[in-house]
Amino acid sequence: MRSGVVVLGAVAFGYLSFRIGFKPYLDRAQEAMDSSHDAAAAASTDSSGGADRQDDGADLAPSSKDPAVVLRD
Results as ranks from 00 to 15, higher is better:
L8P: 00
K65C: 11
Y25Q: 14
S63T: 15
V11A: 14
I20T: 12
A51C: 10
K65A: 15
K65E: 14
Y15M: 07
D38M: 13
G50K: 15
S47E: 12
A39N: 06
D66C: 05
D73L: 03
D59V: 07
D59P: 00
S44V: 13
M33T: 13
P62T: 01
E31W: 03
F22R: 12
R19M: 10
V70Y: 00
D73R: 07
G9M: 10
P67M: 08
G21N: 03
G50F: 07
R53W: 06
G14L: 09
Y25S: 12
D56L: 13
D27Y: 05
S63F: 06
D27R: 11
S48D: 04
S17I: 14
L60Q: 08
L8V: 12
A29H: 03
A39D: 08
L8M: 14
D27N: 11
L8H: 00
T45P: 00
R53Q: 10
E31V: 05
G50L: 06
G49I: 04
F13R: 06
Y25P: 01
D56M: 12
A68R: 13
D59T: 11
G21E: 01
D56K: 13
K23D: 11
F22Q: 10
G4Y: 05
V70H: 00
M33F: 14
D27V: 10
R53P: 04
G49Q: 00
S48H: 02
I20S: 08
F13H: 07
S44K: 13
S48Y: 01
P62Q: 03
L71T: 05
K65V: 11
L60A: 10
A68M: 14
G9V: 05
R19D: 02
S63I: 04
A58D: 09
R2L: 10
P24R: 02
D34W: 04
A41E: 11
R28Q: 14
L26D: 03
L60K: 10
V69C: 02
D27L: 04
P62I: 01
V69R: 05
D73H: 09
V7R: 12
M33N: 09
F22P: 00
A51P: 00
V69D: 02
S63W: 04
S64H: 13
S47T: 06
L71Q: 10
D56G: 03
